[in-house]
Amino acid sequence: MSRGDDTGRRRGRVTGTIRAAGRALHVDHRPGAAGRVPLVLCSGIGTSSTLFDALVDRLDPDRPLVLFDAPGIGRSPRPIVPYRMPALACALRGVVDRLGYRRADVLGVSWGGGLAQQYAVQNPRHCRRVVLTATATGTLMVPAAPRVLLRMATPRRHRDPEYARSIAGEIYGGSARTAGPRVADLLHREPRATSVLPYLFQLAAMAGWTSLPFLPLLRQPTLVMVGDDDPIIPEVNGRIMQRLLPRGRLHRYRGGHLAVLSEAAELAPVIDRFLDGPD
């Protein structure tokens, strides 16, 4: 990692910037126990790696973790030109290599689930296991209601905490319907507001992208986690993915789009058991 002004330690994790495949990404690395396979965490659109704080606190403390901010999000430098999912997956592989790991597991939430799928198909031997939560197959999926999609088209909910609290139940479902402010506050753990251009670049990275053609090619054991009240990713998407994945497993939970974070105490053990389970 670079030793610039952004390098430090946060909650036992070494933080800094890693350059790989022509990109500079801010990375948090929790080394964990020697010899363990690391888990790479890919966050949703417009959110930095701090989104995972609640989940990190509940995962096996001996599990190495690799967290990162997408280009222009959080503490990663702003990209000059748009990028595509395959390019970002290549950079992420470079980050894992630079940290000294030969294999890795990957977990993705929402937009990050698309990146996790791309990472898995590009690295069939390097990527050991995959966890996909509150995510779908990209452009070709069962879409959310138009009103929800409209809310997602801009980063306003990442820039305006009061607005995020007012719409949390409508777009995130689950516990956000009764505890909207608490769930919405998960999006505002990073002191820097999400900029418009990097958010648009994230949208552009997903434009036209779909995993439908290659899901049957993924040979890694894959856990698909779906909520029964997710307005952004209707539950049927997870069921479609599980059927297409040769080694896919489905875990249905009671909750909404951010349940893996807001109900981490319940769902982190499910993730740990899957990652440590037999092939």
Rank of each mutant, 00 (worst) to 15 (best):
D230V: 09
G4K: 11
I240D: 05
V142E: 09
R125C: 09
I73Y: 13
R157Y: 07
R249G: 02
L223C: 11
P79Q: 09
G12Q: 11
L41M: 13
L215A: 12
V95D: 01
L41D: 00
P213H: 01
D229H: 01
M1T: 10
D62S: 11
D185V: 06
A24F: 01
Q118W: 00
A168C: 09
A153C: 07
D276P: 02
P79T: 05
A164E: 06
L59G: 05
L150T: 14
G227P: 10
I45E: 03
L267Y: 01
D28R: 15
I73V: 15
G180V: 06
L245D: 00
G138E: 09
A205V: 11
V106I: 13
G180R: 06
V106T: 02
R63Y: 10
G100Y: 08
D105M: 01
V121S: 04
P61T: 09
C90E: 13
R98F: 01
E235L: 02
M152I: 07
R75L: 15
L107K: 01
P191N: 12
A116H: 07
P79G: 06
T154C: 05
A204Y: 12
W111D: 04
L245I: 03
A91L: 06
C42K: 03
A193K: 15
L245G: 07
R11K: 08
A153D: 08
L186W: 00
E170F: 08
R78H: 14
D28L: 15
L218T: 05
P269W: 11
R102C: 04
L99T: 04
A70I: 02
D62R: 13
L99S: 03
S43E: 07
G35K: 07
Y199A: 06
D185Y: 11
P161E: 08
P71D: 10
A176H: 07
D69K: 00
R9Y: 14
R189P: 04
L51K: 00
L275F: 14
L244C: 06
Q242V: 10
P124C: 14
S49V: 04
D60C: 08
R129L: 12
G8Q: 05
S2D: 12
A204F: 13
R165D: 08
A168F: 14
D28P: 00
A193F: 00
V224M: 05
R159G: 05
Q242H: 04
Y101F: 15
G35L: 12
P278K: 07
R147E: 15
L218H: 07
D160F: 13
T210I: 04
L215M: 14
S76V: 00
G108R: 02
P82Q: 04
L267K: 04
P198Q: 04
P278Q: 05
L149I: 12
R128I: 03
S48G: 10
T154F: 11
A184E: 06
G248H: 03
T50Y: 03
R30T: 09
P61V: 11
A259N: 02
P155K: 12
L197T: 11
E266Q: 15
R84G: 10
